[in-house]
């Protein structure tokens, strides 16, 4: 609102908002802080907040004991692979729906959306069985494909909404200017679509990284990503707060950073363009 706001009012807003914000963020903050404590400090009563001996020891231990890198690598491959594969398949689809729409386009889009709504547990056994029969249980490629299929509707949708924002007149101008199909794609459409494609990749990478139904149920050792690695800490012998925190911090840090870049796309991607 254009009206001038008194400084007091603004200060009050700031105080309230920061308090609430920090409260909501506190579990993450606490986890990160604890990861730098020794196990004794981690469970000290009363808790120490900042003034403890900062140590990186936990990270080393987690890394050594649990072969953290392998889980990380699996996560990167599964999330990255499924996203890239999905985008490769979705770009032509979204492209044709945005630029040469037919009467069926809307129905197809809605139908794609409906597949996303299918509860995973409803098809858990068939997929599980298929994986066993094809010998791809606990297999990274299988998970890449499955997560790609899970997120494909969202990828198509996001790309579609981005592509649709490219005005048709620009394409006509390019045609008048002598651009053939190849040049039109190369010089006009692709550069204009790149930001949309990048945001789509970002958001879907995050969603795939955090996916915790199929990754938990279809992996055991070889293909287990970070979701499964963390879940293994829920057993009693894993109960060391500082190490748990270090492991957690490593699992969420990359995504938190990416997440900060994708706030805006989040709304578009998860509401299927219904809220802008």
């Amino acid at each position: 609102m254009a009206r001038a706001v008194t400084t007091q009012r603004k200060a009050l807003n700031t105080a309230v908002a920061w308090t609430v914000g920090l409260l909501i963020f506190f579990p993450i903050l606490w986890t990160v802080l604890t990861s730098f404590k020794t196990e004794a400090e981690a469970i000290a009563n009363p808790p120490v907040i900042l003034f403890f001996d900062w140590t990186l020891e936990n990270y080393g231990v987690v890394q050594e004991r649990s072969n953290y890198m392998r889980f990380l690598w699996n996560s990167v491959i599964i999330a990255g692979g499924s996203t890239l594969l999905g985008v490769l398949i979705a770009v032509p689809a979204a492209w044709s729906m945005a630029f040469v729409p037919s009467k069926r386009t809307k129905d197809i889009l809605l139908w794609m959306l409906s597949t996303k709504m299918l509860p995973a547990v409803g098809v858990l056994y068939p997929i599980y069985l298929l994986c066993i029969q094809l010998g791809v249980l606990d297999n990274r490629v299988a998970l890449v494909v499955i997560l790609m299929l899970i997120n494909l509707p969202i990828i198509v949708w996001m790309l579609y909404t981005y592509f649709r924002e490219i005005p048709g007149e620009i394409l006509e101008a390019a045609r008048m200017d002598g651009a053939g199909l190849k040049e039109e794609l190369l010089y006009v459409l692709t550069p204009m679509a790149v930001p949309g494609i990048a945001s789509t990749i970002l958001l879907n990478f995050i969603l795939a990284w955090n996916e915790a139904f199929w990754t938990l149920n279809l992996t055991s050792v070889d293909a287990a990503p970070l979701t499964a690695f963390i879940a293994s800490y829920s057993s009693p012998e894993g109960l060391f707060f500082a190490k748990l925190s270090a492991a957690s911090t490593m699992a969420i840090a990359p995504i938190l950073i990416l997440g900060w870049f994708s706030q805006k796309q989040l709304v578009r991607g998860l509401t299927f363009g219904a809220v802008k």
């Binding site: 963020f25 707060f241 748990l244 969420i252 706030q263």
Partner: peptide
């Protein structure tokens, strides 16, 4: 307010935490 962008990020952050981590952190810590 001051620092609106930062507060926004603080509030949104939990959404990016993978479900197994948030469950485990809440459960134990």
């Amino acid at each position: 307010m001051w620092g609106q962008g930062i507060v926004r990020i603080l509030v949104i952050a939990p959404f990016f935490v993978m479900p197994t981590v948030s469950a485990l952190v809440w459960k134990n810590m």
